[in-house]
Design a protein around this nucleic acid. Sequence first.
RNA 1: GUGGGAUUAGUUCAGUUGGUUAGAGCGCUAGUUUGUGGCACUAGAAAUCAUGGGUUCGAAUCCCAUAUCCCACCCCA
Length: 418
Amino acid sequence: MRYAAQKGTKDILPQEIFRWHKAERTFADVCHSYGYEEIRVPTFEQTDLFQRGVGDTTDVVQKEMYTFEDKGGRSITLRPEGTAGVARSFIENGMTSLASPVRMFYNITAFRYENVQKGRMREFHQFGLEAFGSEGPEIDAEIISLLTVFFEKMGVKHTKLCINSIGCPTCRAKYNEILKDYFRPHMDELCPDCKARFEKNPLRMIDCKVEGCKKYAVNAPRLIDYLCEDCNAHFETLKAELTNLGINYTIDPGIVRGLDYYTRTVFEFVSENVGTQGTICGGGRYDGLIEELGGTKVPGIGFGMGVERLLMECEAQQIEFENPTNVKVYFANLCDEAKPIISKLCLDLRKAGIGCERDLVGRSFKAQMKYANKAGIPYLIVLGEDEVKNGKANIKNMADGSQEEVALDGIVNFFENK
RNA sequence: GUGGGAUUAGUUCAGUUGGUUAGAGCGCUAGUUUGUGGCACUAGAAAUCAUGGGUUCGAAUCCCAUAUCCCACCCCA
């Protein structure tokens, strides 16, 4: 084995692609039903876009980006997430002038230089969507409901929805001071990370997993108790709307989200089956992002869903996907004279959109039978000297062994009616 | 960036205290007499034992390094 897929990357093989297709189709269908259209944006952007958009202090930007200089001396970064690129496209293409909300979904690969473990890859796939131009909270609830519909259509049960509000810059600044006042007396006992967080991003301290910090974090003042009036009203309406839609949720004040652009509503769908990387889907509101990236002040909300994690969850819940074979009929040949006739029949069937196969490696007749059986091809037609002479052949149903005689020029017609 | 476990045919795994030609199941190919698959049986192909060093008369087996995979910390999707 000379070459191997790079660390943290994976081949998606033909034998499993049907699971991906099912998820992709389902996601697109559900998005369409909520008025979202697909957008496709480039895999790489200028590094600065992510530094500004995702945030300079985040782990993602600080240590996980695939950044390189191209031959023109530009600093390029493989996207570590989807929102920044879509936001850039929104601004660049003047979508501010479109009717609000501007709703777009996507299916992308993203790249993060991380240590690999269960549910965490260096190249991974994300379904996501963004909605620009609505302050919510109805659209916040709508997007969460879109996800519940998606999970339902995928057959995924009991994922836990956690929500929180991290407020707007105004109430967050106030809260940060309150939080710092709370932690200040205990500074000496905090982990080095938290000491750094104290200055840069105190919000993250309540998220710390280190035992010494945890015992203070548990009793720390919570942001949702210090929301400003507007943010509080926003969150209350969201909760009421979720209840109205019959969606169960848990308020988890610990959800902070690791990307700087989030404001107000943040949420996660969590599973217990995907190991410690339990977050299948995470998202939230980012009312300041478009302005931060040089656009006008336009509110936005979106989410990203880890497709690998989604499929892991499906597997853990033993959800069975159909794997339909596209090939309907196999032609077995018994003599050389039959071969050109089979070639022509295959062409006609394929033009009619009917999948078919024939021997391409010189297998014996018996081996051809075995092959068709193993491949799960539902119909088989044998062409030998008799069939060539009479212009008729038996169409064999592989499931029950029954046969039906059909003229060779009636074969396409036979399958068109199947 | 930091820990722990692993790495032997395509794949899942055996391989005794270091000892001759490294095994099996599944898969693949062919056959079990002539134009009909599944089951069964037989045979075959397929392995630089992750890579590079070292110890030894002798290494898949012991030692070191590196890589990769899995799991966890951290972070996130």
